[in-house]
Amino acid sequence: MAPLSTAPLPRVLPSLAPGTVLRDGLDRIVHGHTGALVVLGSNPALEALSTGGFTIDVPLTSTALRELAKMDGAIVLSTGLDRILAAAVHLSPSADPPTTETGTRHRTAERVALETGLEVVTVSASMGTISVFAGSGRELVPRPDQLIDRATQAIGALAAHRVRLFDSLDRLTAREVTHAVTLRDLAQVAQRFEMINRVADEATALVSGLGADGRLVSLQLRDLTEDLTPLASLVQRDYVPDGSESLLLAGLGTLHDPELFDVVLVGRSLGFPDAVHLDSPLAPKGYRQLAGIRKLPAGVSARIVERFGDLAGVYAASQVELLGVDEVTPEVARAVRDGLATIAERVLSAQ
């Protein structure tokens, strides 16, 4: 038998989530200790492999799926997965593609998926499991309790990575205040952002597979991630490499998991010239720190950065010099000076 994975199939998993008609029907088949082969959709390639059976074209219901599974042959659903097009269909895929599956149902499902490009669901009568075949892969559809356990673990991991990210951001802020930022500091922050992205992607897929049962986990996921996108955007604006339009945080997505732990590879993937090494100094623009000052009107931060060049220039600017920036009032100038002083005091006292 082919090795199984419990990684969800992004397109199909929501349709197999607890509470959906299709999943309810499949669960009824499992509990009835009968097997099934269900093709998710139809196309000319499938029609070329099909003989016999009954064309019924009726709405998909869980009870109808359960009763039709008692007959030999495949059940064919519409592309929208809302109708049962045919039942008791005999499928005759080519025997040429090699397969390590041993059961007739699973061998047929694997070859049909490969030849037609459609997903095929099987229910094992002996094992009581539901599998999805897509292309040359086979995925085991987790039980709801397994999905909840995995989603809970993902949320826990996400929370831990979030704590580490903000620790890294605090260290970066401290280095910014002392004008001592290096590519190594930035790479460590970028590393944390990408780790969170990967865990969040997995958690999102798991939540989609939980359907209505995933509401609370979905709220936790949103609470842990909704503020990170604007924060990452500020970091990217602060550290745009010379000659580039933005910092390439998205470029880290091409790294394999083991590579993501190599800070050298992370640093190289951010888009800086080859001459910039991990201990090379960087000069942040200051957008992230200015964004932390609540009384600063929208758009004023960009004008301040443009006027003084970078964060070091902003820190060195007097209140009178700040008043020379368009739309900077005495109140705004005081807020900038006091806000930056508060940030510096906070991060330096924490060291």
Score class of each variant (00 low, 15 high):
1 M>A: 13
6 T>V: 14
12 V>G: 01
14 P>W: 04
17 A>T: 04
20 T>K: 15
21 V>P: 03
22 L>M: 11
22 L>H: 13
27 D>S: 08
37 L>D: 01
38 V>W: 07
38 V>P: 00
45 A>N: 11
47 E>S: 13
50 S>F: 07
58 V>T: 10
65 L>E: 09
67 E>Y: 14
69 A>D: 07
72 D>I: 05
72 D>R: 14
74 A>E: 00
81 L>A: 13
85 L>G: 04
85 L>V: 08
86 A>K: 03
87 A>R: 10
96 D>C: 06
97 P>W: 02
111 R>C: 05
112 V>G: 13
116 T>L: 10
118 L>W: 03
119 E>N: 15
121 V>Q: 04
127 M>R: 12
127 M>H: 07
130 I>M: 08
137 G>T: 08
142 P>Q: 09
144 P>S: 09
146 Q>K: 09
155 I>G: 09
161 H>G: 03
161 H>M: 04
162 R>I: 03
164 R>Q: 13
168 S>Q: 08
168 S>P: 05
169 L>G: 04
185 D>P: 09
188 Q>W: 03
193 F>M: 06
193 F>D: 01
196 I>N: 01
197 N>T: 06
198 R>W: 00
201 D>G: 13
202 E>V: 12
208 S>H: 15
209 G>E: 14
211 G>N: 07
213 D>R: 14
216 L>A: 14
217 V>P: 02
223 D>W: 05
225 T>P: 07
225 T>R: 08
226 E>D: 14
227 D>W: 12
235 V>W: 00
236 Q>W: 00
240 V>A: 12
243 G>M: 02
245 E>P: 07
246 S>D: 00
246 S>G: 03
247 L>I: 07
249 L>V: 03
253 G>D: 07
254 T>I: 10
257 D>G: 07
257 D>W: 08
259 E>L: 04
264 V>K: 11
266 V>Q: 00
267 G>D: 01
273 P>L: 06
274 D>L: 14
274 D>M: 09
277 H>Q: 15
278 L>F: 01
278 L>G: 03
279 D>C: 05
283 A>V: 12
284 P>C: 11
285 K>H: 02
286 G>P: 06
293 I>A: 08
293 I>N: 08
295 K>C: 06
296 L>T: 09
296 L>R: 00
297 P>C: 04
297 P>F: 05
298 A>D: 10
301 S>R: 02
302 A>C: 03
305 V>Q: 13
306 E>L: 02
311 L>F: 15
311 L>M: 03
313 G>A: 13
320 V>Y: 14
324 G>P: 12
325 V>S: 07
326 D>I: 04
342 T>N: 12
343 I>P: 01
346 R>P: 00
347 V>F: 04
348 L>P: 12
348 L>K: 07
349 S>D: 15
350 A>Q: 06
351 Q>K: 12
